[in-house]
Design a protein around this nucleic acid. Structure first.
Length: 559
RNA sequence: CGGGGUGUAGCUCAGCCUGGCUAGAGCGCUUGGUUUGGGACCAAGAAGUCGCAGGUUCAAAUCCUGUCACCCCGACCA
C-alpha cells in the first residue's frame, strides 16, 4: 500500500526497478519505501488527487470556477454545465440540449412564433435534404456554404466483408443536408407563384440545420443547430425591403424585451454579408467579455434567388417580373447570448420572462411532523402563485421536494438561474411569511405571504428590467468613439499577451467598406460588426484609407 | 486543413519516460449512522476489457505502427 501511494516519485520508480528486477524480494521493497520517505520525495504524498484536494477546509466563494475575470471562455462552459443546459454529444460538433436548456429554447420559440404570426407569417416545413444542384444555382450562395455542407451520397447499409455495415446504393445525385433553406424553399415558391395576386408569400420554418463547423462551442457554434428561418417573396422591391427591416425590428424587440439583451440594429459590410444577399442586417449584442455577438440576421435578397430559381409572376400590367425575396433567422445561439449576457460567477441567470420556472419553492423541514405542515403550505402557495398572469402565461412554479440536503439543493437552483427562490420552513410558517432569495442581486428577505402574492409580478418585472439595465450599462461603459488607428490598437491590445484579460468593447469609427480595411482589422482580430441604422450621418475620413465616410461603424472582437 | 496536446471509474486526473506485485486518488454514486435555515461528517460498498486495431515480449495502461475521438492555437463561420 505505501508503495502505491508513493508511486509517482521518480526515485521510487528507480528503486522499484531495482527491487523488481535484480532483487525482487519483499525486503527490498520495504527498503525502497524507507528510502523514499527519508528523502521526502516532493511528489510522493502531497500532490495526490485532483485540483480540489487543495484547500479542503475553505469552501469556494463562488459556484463557478474559474470566474469570468479569470477565464471567460472556460467560465462559459462551466456555467452551461452547472446549470445543466447542455453537453457535448458523442457526435462530433453536435450537442445535446438538456431539459433546462431546451425549455428556455421552447419559451423563445413560443414568443417568437407569436410575433411572426402577428406580422402575418405562417409556419411550414421543407425537406432536410436538398439536391446538390439546387445549391449550385446561386453563385455566391455556393461559395458561402459549399465548404461546410454535409453530403449524403448513399441510401442503404449492407454488411461488408468484415461484417461491419458499409454504405451501399449510391445516389445518382448527392443530397446535402440543409445549411439553410433558401434554395429548396425558393424552388417551391417558383411553383406557387404565378400572378402578383399570389404575393406576398410569408413563410416561416422551425428546423434544424447543419453546418460542418471545425471549431465548435456549445450553443454559439455547433455543427447542427436549431433555428427558425423566415422566407418571403414580394412583388416589389420596396415591399421586400420593408419586410427585411420589419423582421429585424421584431428580433430587436424580442432580444430587448424578452432576452433582456440590448442590441444594436445595423447593416453588415460586404465581407459579413449573407452569401447571395443584397443587404444583410443584424442585431449585435455585447457580451460580458465585451465581445460582440450577432444574435439575429435579416436579409434582403433582391432578385438574386428568384432569378436563379425562376420565381416569376405576371404583374398587374401583364408583364413578367421576378419576385423580390427576403430571409431572416435566429437560432439556439440566443441561448448562448442569454448565458453570456447575464450570468455571474455563481452560474446562470435567466430573465424571468423566458425562465422555464420563474420560482422554485424549497420546503425546509427536519422531521415528518414539520413535513406534514410545511408541504401543504407549499402546495397551496404554489397553487396561488400559478393563478397569477405573467409574460403571456401564468407564473411557472416548482416545488423541489427532493430528498437532498437543503444547502446543496439551494445552490443547484442558484446555478440554474431560477429568478426567485422561496424557502418555506417551520419558522416561516409560524409568521405566514416566505424567505425570498433573488437570483440577480443575491438579496434575501422574509416577505409576508399576502405581500408576496401581491408583488410577485412586480418582483419578476423588476428582475427582468434590472438585467436589461445592467447589460445596457455594460455596453455603454465599454463603447466609445475612436478617431485614430493608434487609439484603436491601444484599446484592443491586451495588457497581458500570454493570458489576455477582458478588454476593448465597441469602437465607433469611420471606415469604408473595403477589403483593405477588413484585412487590416482581421490581422488584429477585429471586424466591422455593423453600421448602426440609428447612427447619425457624420462626415469623416476612413481611419485607414483616408477616403470619405459618412457614418461610423462598430468595430469589435466578435464570436 | 496546418501547428501543439490529451485519451485510464460517472467527472477531474495520477501511474507510462525506465514493461513485471491485486491499476490508484479526489469528487460523485449506493448503504448505514450522526447531522440538518445553508454547497455536512464518519464508516462501509459498487464501479475501469487503461480510446480502438494490429505488432514486439515469457509479460503491455506502459514500447512500436496504424486509426479514431476530443481539447488548445491558427484559417472559416449564425
Amino acid at each position: 500500500m505505501p508503495l502505491r501511494i508513493l508511486k509517482g516519485c521518480k526515485i521510487v520508480r528507480h528503486f522499484r526497478q531495482l527491487a523488481s528486477g535484480s532483487f525482487g524480494g519483499a525486503g527490498e521493497r520495504e527498503l525502497v519505501i524507507a528510502a523514499c520517505l527519508y528523502l521526502k520525495c516532493p511528489r510522493g504524498v502531497g500532490n495526490r488527487g485532483g485540483p480540489r484536494s487543495f484547500g479542503m477546509s475553505n469552501k469556494p466563494k463562488n459556484a463557478i470556477s474559474p470566474t469570468r475575470e479569470e477565464d471567460y471562455p472556460e467560465w462559459y462552459q462551466q456555467v452551461i454545465k452547472a446549470a445543466d443546459l447542455a453537453e457535448v454529444s458523442p457526435v462530433r460538433g453536435c450537442m445535446v440540449i438538456k431539459p433546462w436548456g431546451y425549455s428556455i429554447w421552447e419559451n423563445m420559440q413560443q414568443v417568437l412564433d407569436r410575433m411572426f404570426k402577428a406580422t402575418g407569417h405562417e409556419n411550414a416545413y421543407f425537406p432536410l435534404f436538398i439536391p446538390l444542384s439546387f445549391l449550385q444555382k446561386e453563385a455566391d450562395h455556393v461559395e458561402g456554404f459549399a465548404k461546410e455542407c454535409a453530403v449524403v451520397t448513399h441510401h442503404r447499409l449492407e454488411p461488408g466483408p468484415d461484417g461491419k455495415l458499409v454504405p451501399a446504393g449510391e445516389l445518382d445525385e448527392p443530397l446535402i443536408v440543409r445549411p439553410t433553406s433558401e434554395t429548396i424553399i425558393g424552388s417551391m415558391f417558383a411553383r406557387w407563384v404565378e400572378s402578383y395576386r399570389d404575393l406576398p408569400i410569408l413563410i416561416n420554418q422551425w428546423a434544424n440545420v447543419v453546418r460542418w463547423e471545425l471549431r465548435t462551442r456549445l450553443f454559439l457554434r455547433t455543427a447542427e443547430f436549431l433555428w427558425q428561418e423566415g422566407h418571403t417573396a414580394h412583388a416589389t422591391e420596396v415591399e421586400a425591403r420593408e419586410e427585411t427591416r420589419r423582421m429585424l425590428e421584431v428580433y430587436a424587440d424580442f432580444a430587448e424585451n424578452w432576452l433582456a439583451v440590448p442590441v444594436i440594429q445595423g447593416e453588415k459590410t460586404a465581407a459579413e454579408r449573407f452569401p447571395g444577399a443584397v443587404v444583410t442586417y443584424a442585431i449585435e449584442a455585447m457580451m460580458q467579455d465585451r465581445k460582440a455577438l450577432q444574435a439575429g440576421t435579416s436579409h434582403f435578397l433582391g432578385q438574386n434567388f428568384s432569378q436563379a430559381q425562376n420565381i416569376k409572376f405576371q404583374d398587374a400590367q401583364g408583364g413578367e417580373s421576378f419576385a423580390w425575396t427576403t430571409s431572416w433567422g435566429v437560432s439556439t445561439r440566443l441561448v448562448g447570448a442569454l448565458v453570456m449576457a447575464h450570468s455571474d460567477d455563481d452560474g446562470l441567470i435567466v430573465p424571468p420572462r423566458l425562465a422555464p420556472r420563474q420560482m422554485v419553492i424549497l420546503p425546509i423541514y427536519r422531521g415528518p411532523d414539520d413535513r406534514a405542515s410545511v408541504l401543504p403550505y407549499c402546495e397551496s402557495l404554489k397553487k396561488d402563485l400559478e393563478q397569477i398572469d405573467f409574460a403571456g402565461g401564468k407564473i411557472r412554479v416548482q416545488i423541489d421536494d427532493r430528498d437532498i440536503r437543503g444547502g446543496e439543493k439551494n445552490w443547484q437552483h442558484i446555478k440554474r438561474g431560477v429568478p426567485l427562490r422561496l424557502e418555506v420552513g417551520p419558522k416561516d410558517l409560524a409568521k405566514d411569511s416566505i424567505f425570498v432569495g433573488r437570483r440577480d442581486t443575491g438579496e434575501k428577505s422574509s416577505v409576508p405571504r399576502a405581500e408576496l402574492l401581491a408583488t410577485a409580478v412586480q418582483r419578476l418585472d423588476e428582475i427582468q428590467r434590472h438585467l436589461f439595465d445592467r447589460a445596457l450599462q455594460l455596453r455603454e461603459s465599454h463603447s466609445r468613439r475612436v478617431d485614430s488607428l493608434d487609439e484603436l490598437q491601444a484599446w484592443f491590445a491586451p495588457r497581458n499577451e500570454d493570458k489576455p484579460e477582458i478588454h476593448g468593447g465597441f469602437a465607433y469609427c469611420h471606415f469604408i467598406d473595403d477589403p483593405l480595411v477588413n484585412d487590416w482589422l482581421r490581422e488584429r482580430k477585429l471586424t466591422v460588426r455593423c453600421i448602426p441604422l440609428s447612427g447619425e450621418e457624420e462626415p469623416g475620413a476612413c481611419l485607414l484609407t483616408g477616403r470619405p465616410s459618412s457614418k461610423r461603424c462598430i468595430v469589435a472582437k466578435a464570436y
